[in-house]
Design a protein around this nucleic acid. Structure first.
Lengths: 248, 248
DNA sequence: TAGATTGTTAATCGATTAACAATC
DNA sequence: TAGATTGTTAATCGATTAACAATC
């Protein structure tokens, strides 16, 4: 998944494990909710419950950031919100572009969670000339021809791809060439990017498939036993098109 | 993340590690693409490249499913498509309901990746009476009042929640009470569910925050050093509202 | 047989967790 | 001081990876 970086262990930039980084947003959200309710302090136990993790893990995670708690008391909510925000880089402004404004792109453009966390939509870009100029989420759609100019003018370093799978790699290449170094990919394709560019992927159907796997296990429990190592009727490569399928 | 199950190790249902299960959909997608190009066989090296993982990991993953390859030759594409589909439970039909048909719900309803993998949208449900009857993706919106009846009538075991955060827990409770045992949650909240119910979460802004973290590291490299353990101006709990924030 | 590629072993690495000493 | 809760240690567990014997 190309975490870039030529010269370093790559996994841990200044020692914070990937798994911890991935949980910081969860903690931040729980803390933000507490902050809105003007709760002044919170214990690791309470916060862990709110974030849906166990408290030992939470304390270990926080220990990578520094000693921001007080023994016998807990954590100052506002202070921790700030420290985590800073660690995640959310105290600065990140201009992003969203490319591909279909249903999903429009949903993303309207998604409140971006703006409230330092992400500013610099432009919405779509390849369909008929859409150019239309407003989505209060922003005018721009044509793909302008992509490079928009990225440069706004110093965009993060791009969101919500195009159909077929267009994603080309869009990705153009974004990267224009200077984007982080990509959030919603298209169901594996993107190839040069070193130094980060790609994260959100795949709607993959999550559903994982659920189906577990659901199947719940229902069945006694499957037709899957016949351990079934003798196949044909060998690989002997017969191209007909699926060598057997109903177990 | 409540993988349910009272009576077993829970992590590995019949020995397939979670990490492997999460990659099966990736392999399946790569294989489907090969299948469409009528490629008869593929080596672990080629398939791994297409799926974006390393080949040792892929072979290890497949070894949990059985011995479906041929040494010296590779894997039969069609046969492997079938085996992985079966393992994931995609050879059966899964009726799902999508609750909350805003931008995101509509995007999900229109998403092709569902239908093509055995997921059938049994109903689109929204709380707004003004929307009831409107068509989205060729399906009429149904009102939330009908939720329980719809779940029962269609034997729905998988529910997708795309409501605002505030409504998510109540929708979740009703789905579970009606018999749903797997939930895909797009609302930015932690849902609590009884044992035996699986929840998976897709959070659009979390992915972006993780990217921002890495982006920050790329740009800065020489941050203002974050002053290791800053002396705080106040102690937790002494002063509720003012953030104990310091510009490092 | 010679070449290719799987399936598996074993070493390594990273993540999780319980437990508890430190300390507010 | 007594009670509470953090931050850290150390044990455990799971995932990744290189290497190679098995075998087509």
């Amino acid at each position: 998944m190309a975490t870039g970086r030529t010269h370093r262990p790559a996994t841990r930039s200044r020692g914070i494990p990937e798994a911890t980084v991935a949980r910081l947003p969860l903690y931040l959200r729980a803390l933000t909710a507490l902050s809105e309710r003007s709760v002044p302090t919170v214990s690791s136990e309470e916060l862990a419950a709110a974030a849906g993790v166990n408290s030992a893990k939470l304390r270990k995670d926080f220990s990578y950031l520094g000693s921001y708690g007080t023994r016998g008391v807990g954590y100052d909510v506002e202070y921790l919100v700030y420290q985590i925000s800073r660690e995640l880089g959310l105290t600065q402004d990140w201009p992003v572009v969203i490319v591909g404004i279909g249903n999903l792109g429009a949903a993303l453009a309207n998604y409140g969670g971006f703006a409230s966390r330092g992400f500013r939509i610099a432009a919405l870009i779509d390849a369909d000339p008929a859409q150019t100029g239309k407003q989505v989420a209060g922003l005018p759609l721009r044509h793909s021809d302008e992509l490079e100019a928009i990225v440069a003018a706004n110093q965009v370093s993060i791009g969101v791809i919500a195009t159909p799978a077929g267009a994603a790699q080309e869009v990705c290449d153009r974004l990267v060439a224009a200077g984007v170094t982080s990509i959030l990919n919603f298209a169901p394709t594996v993107l190839s990017v040069p070193d130094g560019v980060d790609v994260r992927k959100v795949d709607l159907s993959i999550e559903l498939q994982i659920l189906a796997f577990h659901e199947q296990r719940k229902a069945g429990e006694e499957q037709p036993a899957s016949a351990a190592r079934p003798a196949r009727g044909q060998r690989p490569g002997t017969d191209g098109d007909v699926p060598a399928v057997m109903p177990a």
